[in-house]
Amino acid sequence: MPSATPAIQTDALCKHWGAVRANDEVTLEVAPGEVFGYLGPNGAGKTTTLRLLLDLLRPTSGSAFVLGEDVRAAGARLRRQVGYLPGEMYLWRRMDADATFRLMDRLRGGGGEHLARARQLASRLRLSPTSSVGRMSKGNRQKVGLCLAFMHEPQVLVLDEPTSGLDPLMQAEFHAMVDEARSRGATALVSSHVLAEVEQVADRVGIIRQGRIVTVDSVSGLKERAPRRVRLRLGTGAAAAAVASELDALDGVDAVAAGPGDPPGSLRFLVRGGIDGFVKVIARHEVADLEVHEADLESIFLDHYRDQPGGGA
């Protein structure tokens, strides 16, 4: 996205703890008004990048900028413009939600204005302001965290796994909150380990794996590249093994293991790009059954994760 100054920018950002390279040359640019989905499996380094942006961690090398300012140099002043939701929402157990809002209103010098907005957000998220944090479920604590991140209408939102613990209805409400923030010009960096969670709100998506950015693309760009999942069952007359290896040899076609619920004799493939070649090959044989699932972002996401140790979904 063309813009003079990115709202969020990291430049070859590295964070190493001994041999562990939590972030390795992470370079990202998020334009003003953009919602950026930051994806990766657990432990990939998403939280590290977010905490570097908040100046909670200090980079081994590289630099991070928010609204054009170095996060280390600008310090607390910059965080007036930032709404941050930590990956794990720890709050004061003896306070209720409203007392937490009042504390953060004071810390942000809101003079009651931020407090009023936090209360409105709480009501939208169906959170009782008088419920004690210590007795709250994870989902309700997450709602308090979202209220704190959005209460001052920040220019930049840094949200670590924001929908974690939220039911589908509240996830939809969260998406609406992000949409509203975007429409007033705010920028958001939203991390998740599940693509479907950010698919609806993100303009672009970056995938991080083992501390390195492996791809950055628009959601539509990713969709174009996403493989179709195909399940094929040949008639009894066809030599299944020979057909399978013929298909596997095609460009963009990979044979994958059959699913546990598949009928006997089923073959499965991932087909990237056009499906024409695939169809022409099977047309020469007797086909008993054929299912083609439309391009699915989760598979491209998993595609990037594949073959990495400990990097399950």
Binding site: R79, R80, Y84, L107
Partner: peptide
């Protein structure tokens, strides 16, 4: 982390 997420 919550406190330092604010301008402190």
């Amino acid at each position: 982390e919550v406190l330092l997420g604010a301008p402190v």
